[in-house]
């Protein structure tokens, strides 16, 4: 599998990482090399093999549906780059 510049630009948009046009060519080459190496997995017949999602053989634990935390607004906001009036802020999204 060889990735072209347009595909890399599309992935970068999906991943929300700005990549300058001048870097796309180089990155396409690197990612294609990695994917080419990965493609040896195609040699293995995995028909009928269950996909493994985790290694711990156990049921997901449950807990009582009760409030165990809260009233720590200032702690939650303490690391925000631009908090205002007790909220996180983002650039304007509604015109």
């Amino acid at each position: 599998m060889s990735l072209d510049k347009a595909t890399v630009a599309h992935i970068a948009t999906l991943a929300r990482i700005k990549i300058p046009d001048s870097d796309l060519e180089h990155l396409a080459g690197e990612l294609s090399q990695i994917l080419g190496w990965i493609e040896q997995l195609g040699e293995v017949d995995t028909t009928g093999v269950e996909p493994m999602t985790g290694v711990v053989q156990m049921d997901l634990p449950r807990r009582a549906d009760v409030v165990t935390d809260g009233n720590i607004r200032d702690k939650v906001l303490a690391n925000a780059p631009e908090p205002a009036h007790g909220f996180f802020t983002v650039p304007k999204v509604v015109e």
């Binding site: 990482i17 700005k18 996180f88 650039p91």
Partner: peptide, 23 residues
């Protein structure tokens, strides 16, 4: 994402801010 903790780089829109911050 530049909203809740760590670095934030300015951008004209929400997506532009995300993309600049992560870049």
């Amino acid at each position: 994402d530049g909203v809740r903790f760590g670095l934030r780089e300015p951008g004209d829109s929400l997506d532009a801010m995300y993309e600049a911050t992560r870049a």
